[in-house]
């Protein structure tokens, strides 16, 4: 379970995030939506302790994220390409992560097996460095890396962006599979209302750093409500 407890984030002249309380129970697929600048990425960065909060704190399975680092063992994330080592080939990067997570070569193969379809033969075995891959393929490497450490919590920022339609569908299947097989908790931000409502059990809508809607229910219902907010209908 992830608990966000009276978290605010202020910069000199503005408050970018203000969440009094938000709990994400285990095995939930949590979708985060909102317009640009709503604070989605900021929230993810705070959950990952990449930026400090101004007040409040975040607990991940009971660990306060800014105080301990144990939670990193079971938390996988891909927010942007800074999380990669762009001078390695994808295979080298996976090997490096295996070392960090203490996985064997066989473990890596098992963990990456479900990604075979998503990779489409363009990731494994290539001699190209990550920095020379296309944006979509870089994203695929990052997402696979987030899954690699056998995590129980996975954060993905805009995972569908830059992926082609068939890759988007494959990725959705992967997320649903991991939810069932490993009872993973997912936190996913997206602008793609169709996809995010389809996979999420719950959707939270951010506006200017505040939670203004917290929805659970059928994906059709959530999608309709969101489209109303975003002015599509």
């Amino acid at each position: 379970m992830i608990e966000i407890i009276s978290v605010t984030k202020k910069y000199v002249d503005s408050t970018v995030l203000d969440i009094p309380k938000l709990e994400i129970p285990r095995n939930q697929c949590f979708g985060l939506v909102g317009n640009n600048g709503a604070g989605k990425t900021t929230l993810f960065r705070i959950i990952l302790d990449l930026i400090p909060t101004t007040t409040g704190h975040v607990r991940n399975e009971g660990h306060i994220v800014s105080k301990t680092e144990e939670w990193k063992e079971f938390t996988g994330a891909y927010l942007d390409e800074h999380m990669l080592l762009s001078y390695l080939t994808p295979d080298e990067y996976f090997e490096t992560l295996a070392k960090i997570y203490n996985l064997s070569a066989e473990d890596v193969e098992v963990r990456l097996e479900p990604f075979k379809e998503l990779f489409n033969g363009e990731i494994r075995g290539t001699k190209k460095y990550i920095r020379d891959l296309s944006k979509g393929n870089v994203k695929k490497v990052g997402i696979a890396a987030a899954f690699l450490g056998n995590p129980s919590v996975i954060l993905l920022d805009e995972p569908f962006e830059n992926l082609d339609p068939s890759s988007q569908i494959k990725l959705k299947k992967l997320i649903e599979q991991a939810k069932v097989d490993q009872s993973c908790t997912f936190l996913i931000s997206s602008h793609d209302l169709d996809h995010v409502t389809e996979i999420s059990d719950r959707i939270v809508l951010l506006e200017k750093g505040k939670v203004i809607k917290d929805m659970k229910g059928s994906s059709e219902m959530m999608e309709q409500e969101l489209k109303k907010y975003f002015g599509a209908e």
Binding site: L48, D49, L50, E69, K72, E73, T75, A77, L79, H82, M83, L84, L85, L97, I100, Y101, G149
Partner: peptide
């Protein structure tokens, strides 16, 4: 550092 901060390596 930014490439490693999210991984389980002690800060």
């Amino acid at each position: 550092m930014e490439h490693y901060l999210h991984l389980p390596i002690r800060r």
